[in-house]
Amino acid sequence: MTTEIAEPASKVELPSHLSGDAGEIPSFECTIRIARFVPEQDEEPHWEDYQVTMYGTDRVLDALHKIKWEIDGSLSFRRSCAHGICGSDAMRINGRNRLACKTLLKDLDTSKPITVEPIKGLPVEKDLIVDMEPFFQSYREIMPFLITTGNEPTRERLQSQEDRARFDDTTKCILCAACTSSCPVFWTDGQYFGPAAIVNAHRFIFDSRDEGGDLRLEILNDKEGVWRCRTTFNCSEACPRGIEVTKAIAEVKQALFTRAF
């Protein structure tokens, strides 16, 4: 595609908030209500409220940092990239699974306390930190790697653009667990593989280069596999990468019907 781009103007009028005449960045007060749990001293998690002054486009992660850095350094949560790419900070914010670094406070109702809890269905280790091992265990069980037979080619394997596009959506997964920990089936049955593992199986089952699809389908045909999915769509709504999780699960189910093994 070549687009002709008209030469942009050397100078334009800017609105006053950009030209720098419009005063300060708006600030607002909010209450963050956090489910605190310190294993060395608490039997049960309890709510704790924190009052903070936040600015403009601050995110929930900024509020958590402000609390940790200025009010109570013992508040514990995971985070790294701070822009929705590493998958560290999935948590339940106002009852919905989201990434704290991708949730703007101004998009929430700040007239009421904003509740922040750990994601559900995984053992809580401390405050907002859960044990991710069971989640990664399910992921590892679906054999999340390219399986091929025969000799390695000397150059790259060929793949058409259509074949490449077939599984593009599920390659976006950052293993944040927002989907799996929003699934009511997973909450009641921790053995269920959960949406994230199925998404990652999908990524390989529909990759034209892969020859391990049948192995993975067999694994997912298990009683804790895809058939437990009740299509509640929580997972698709929770996914911060916009992956159509429910659709991916449906496609895996479909493959189980049509593939003989």
């Binding site: 390219l146 390695e152 790259e156 394997r157 793949q159 599984f167």
Partner: peptide, 15 residues
Amino acid sequence: EKMGLPFNRTPEGKI
């Protein structure tokens, strides 16, 4: 690529 990385492809299917 051999490990499975999904590179974008040319019309001929190469990386």
